[in-house]
Simulated scan of single mutants.
Amino acid sequence: MNAHLYLRASTKDQDALRAKKLLEAFAAEKNLAVVGVYSENISGTKLTRPELMSLLDAAQPGEILLCESVDRLSRLSMADWETLKATIKGKGLRLVIADLPTSHMMVEDKGITGQIMEVINAMLLDLMATMARLDQEKRVERITQGLANKRAADPDWKPAGKGKNAELWMNVQAAMTKHPTMNADELAKLVGCGVATIYRIKRELKA
């Protein structure tokens, strides 16, 4: 049976190919033929992702979409997750998640027991997708609240070592966290500052 590997990381600083060997070993163990590897650095909150869309276009009915974990496939809103699931089902693909054992049965033909496990697996997939989305939302919320608390406790507070406008820094950092795939031009328009300011803040944050 053919398998298409999907690998995703949130930012360019992370390695989307990190899990490639793990998934290749999983495929070998299950006697799957890897016919495509799709890797990209993009937020899991986005439904439309170039490599994921390419995978869905190329994969044929009965083939497997293989991911390391649910959060590598989705940190989507509930509506977008339902859309993605419907697309995968509509293509006739089998979704297998390496760290979700109940999904492994999708590799095999299903009898009555398999049909029951498929229902259980679908419930677990939905649960884990919801947890992945909530984790993302909490992460953004914690950063935003932390910066706001510092500002409230000390109105003159500025990021350590930066003689910059604290509110602008907070806004840019929050925007970068919430929209990790936005480029400098998009961030500048969103926050309402110059592109040069975005580049300067990014450069100094890495320092």
Rank of each mutant, 00 (worst) to 15 (best):
M1T: 12
A3T: 01
L5I: 12
Y6A: 09
Y6D: 07
L7D: 09
L7C: 13
L7A: 12
T11D: 12
D15T: 14
L17R: 14
R18N: 13
A19P: 03
A19R: 06
A19S: 09
K20L: 10
A25G: 05
F26D: 02
A27E: 01
K30F: 14
N31F: 09
N31P: 06
N31T: 07
L32F: 14
L32E: 08
V37N: 00
Y38I: 02
E40Y: 08
E40M: 05
S43T: 15
L47E: 07
T48D: 15
P50S: 10
M53F: 01
M53P: 01
L55D: 00
L56V: 10
D57Y: 08
A58E: 15
Q60T: 14
G62P: 09
I64M: 08
L66H: 09
C67K: 05
E68V: 04
V70C: 11
V70G: 10
R72K: 13
S74H: 05
S74V: 03
R75N: 00
L76T: 04
S77P: 04
S77C: 07
L84A: 07
A86G: 08
T87G: 00
K89I: 04
G90K: 07
G90T: 00
G92V: 13
L93Y: 00
R94F: 06
I97T: 03
A98R: 14
L100A: 06
P101S: 09
E108P: 04
K110H: 12
G111D: 15
G111R: 05
I112T: 11
Q115P: 06
E118K: 13
V119R: 12
V119H: 12
V119K: 09
N121C: 15
A122V: 06
A122Y: 07
M123Y: 09
L124C: 07
L125N: 00
D126C: 02
T130L: 11
T130I: 08
R133P: 03
Q136E: 03
Q136D: 04
E137I: 01
E137C: 03
E137G: 05
K138W: 11
R139G: 08
R142V: 00
T144F: 03
G146Y: 06
A148Y: 00
A148T: 02
K150L: 13
K150R: 15
R151V: 03
A152T: 04
A152K: 09
A153G: 09
P155K: 01
P155S: 13
D156S: 12
P159E: 06
A160P: 10
K162T: 08
E167Q: 11
M170Y: 03
Q173S: 11
Q173M: 12
Q173F: 05
M176A: 03
M176S: 02
T177Y: 10
H179I: 00
H179F: 06
P180T: 05
M182A: 11
M182H: 07
N183C: 08
A184S: 11
D185W: 04
L187Q: 03
L187G: 00
L187C: 00
L190C: 02
L190R: 03
C193T: 14
G194E: 09
G194K: 01
G194W: 03
V195F: 01
T197A: 05
T197K: 04
I198A: 00
I198P: 01
Y199N: 14
Y199H: 15
I201H: 01
K202A: 13
R203K: 15
